[in-house]
Write a protein that binds this DNA or RNA. Structure first.
Lengths: 340, 340
DNA sequence: TATATTTGTTCAATCGTTTGAGCAAATGTA
DNA sequence: TACATTTGCTCAAACGATTGAACAAATATA
């Protein structure tokens, strides 16, 4: 039943006041080096652990950052979060982490609870459902930093870190053309989600750049699940003239497509080349390994954390749209290597 | 620059004291229904949000639970955490979540920071490295609930929730024998990790149960990575007499084994059946889909949360070893279906 | 009617730390 | 020597909520 030691205990031992102890521990210039040393020694002896709650209450800073993640069972998000945490921990912040599970309601509730917990800032990526952004205004009203990543680039008018989806499609198409593809199909996500729309636009413009004709029946919008990928691939195989390359806007869809191709004894990449998107771990594990777009997960995590720390420091900053867009990177694997 | 409303503000509006407001909000029996209603009305009007920090400081309860996860980029852990969070949120707890990244040092630091944040309890799964448990004694000393899951069953003498690894091996071997396997190899994890040791013991005893001879060269210990699985599988293929079934103690190793089998044009499951462990998502995605052990991720998450809530409620509880062991479930897929 | 009990509230201390103001002693400046 | 500045600390009031004790008013009991 041993009590936690407080600054008061340290003060008693040294016959000074708690205020002096507090200042000593924070290296206040008006405390003598002698006292500082003595305080720190006693603090160590008594195993003093500052009570963050008390300090948070008094100073108004909880040293907690709230993070909202759409899902954790995606490699992209979990590695983003991992790096964010690391960076923030270094600066003495802890991360409270919540999942929205792609549900708008849950996202709203997450914001509620995070604000209630008096977090010093919020880092979020929107759910696919989110089209109304009023709940984010609450955060802005509290005047704490709000940083978005991956989803929600233009929506709320704050800092945003993500990759360039439009350009990513260019990179993919450039690569496939370079490998000899002449008719590239696109298994796309739904247009109403901005990132998928950008990928579609990038795909279209890249075709034009390479003087390839745009064929409507080669763009197939759908949900990017394994099953979705299978269906779209089957449709593509039924076309009078088959494509010689397939660019899927998601890895799961790419996997579904690959399964169908292999089941039909179509050689990948010789007959049809395949590229996915996101660098989910399994892409390197299947045979043939799937080429895909790597979104710099780690770097996004770190950049988000740094942006938060920057905003947190500068009290005068007023929220405004500020995008940091990273170039994605193509990882070329067997599924798209027609040439050696 | 609008200030947050406090109970004091509500008190001023109604010309009563903050204590009355506090009690009204908590439905204290000695506050009249009239006052309660009035307080709640004003609270709503002023958009009152209780300051958790203040309440935590005074009451000594932060309503935060610290969770330590070895890694998040594993499907098992992320779904465990997801369900844990949901269950705890329901009861008004927030989750502070930290990763140890399988590093002992990081684990120690995680505990430090969690304790510093004054969490009401800690939920943890040990890293593979952890063999010294003294840092966990600190948690026990603080007399806050400590619940372990998946890793660390007997080590610390507290509540533990996990699956029965020994029995899981029996289930796997039973199934393979039933499918007609006569010589089952085991690509095992290192014995010094308890769960892997239990899987090995289960494998051995199950063979005996089925009157199958135990052949030393069919047990191959190693790290259960894709590459590790590949190597072990290659060793197995070099044996004078090949096994007709392979039970890998991890899905990644199973995948590596599968790759080698397919590269050698060995028919799976006809010539060699294959079973993995953990139900990582990719096991259902590869061809043939890999049979594996499902660890009831969701249920473990929920049970851990419930156990925490139970301990949190009962102040008189003294930590003692208390294991909840779930039976794992075999998911039979193509890779082990020799019979129809 | 006098006393006991219940009801509804106020009072004041407290959780542990931070922080502006205050003040004496030490040091610097003229 | 006299005054200004700096140094090193103390004092006391916060931060916002909770809680045991106190107390007046209302109600019940004898």
């Amino acid at each position: 039943m041993k009590k936690k030691t407080t600054i008061k205990d340290i003060a008693n031992v040294l016959k000074i006041t708690p205020s002096a102890v507090s200042r000593a521990l924070h290296n206040h210039p008006r405390i003598s080096d002698k006292t500082k040393a003595a305080v720190k020694k006693v603090a160590k002896e008594l195993e003093y652990q500052p009570n963050q709650l008390a300090s948070a209450l008094r100073s108004g800073k909880s040293k907690l950052v709230g993070v909202i993640v759409p899902r954790t069972n995606s490699h992209f998000f979990s590695s983003v979060v991992e790096n964010m945490e690391e960076e923030l921990n270094k600066k003495g912040y802890n991360v409270i982490f919540t999942q929205s599970n792609e549900s708008y309601d849950k996202e709203c509730r997450n914001i509620e609870t995070l604000l209630q917990t008096q977090v010093d800032g919020i880092i979020a990526s929107l759910t696919n459902e989110t089209v109304d952004f009023s709940h984010y205004e609450k955060i802005k009203a509290k005047e704490i930093p709000l940083i978005l990543y991956d989803r929600g680039d233009n929506d709320i008018g704050v800092d945003y870190i993500g990759i360039d989806d439009y350009k990513s499609s260019h990179i993919v198409v450039d690569h496939m053309v370079e490998q000899g593809c002449k008719r590239i199909a696109h298994i796309a996500g739904y247009r109403h989600t901005r990132i998928y729309n950008n990928r579609i636009k990038g795909y279209i413009d890249a075709l034009e750049k390479h003087n390839l004709p745009l064929e409507k029946e080669l763009i197939l919008e759908g949900d990017l699940t394994v099953e979705g990928g299978r269906q779209k691939m089957e449709e593509l195989l039924k076309l009078p003239q088959r494509p010689d390359g397939v660019y899927a806007a998601g890895d799961y869809a790419a996997l579904g497509a690959l399964q169908v191709l292999l089941e039909n004894n179509i050689k990948v990449p010789e007959e049809i080349a395949l590229v996915g998107f996101s660098n989910e771990p399994f892409t390197s594990l299947v045979t043939p390994a799937i080429s895909t777009i790597y979104q710099h997960n780690e770097q996004i995590g770190k950049l988000v954390a740094k942006q938060f720390l920057k905003r947190e420091k500068d009290k005068t900053w007023k929220p405004q749209l500020n995008k940091i867009i990273l170039d994605a990177e193509l990882i070329v694997r067997a599924s798209s290597k027609k040439k050696e």
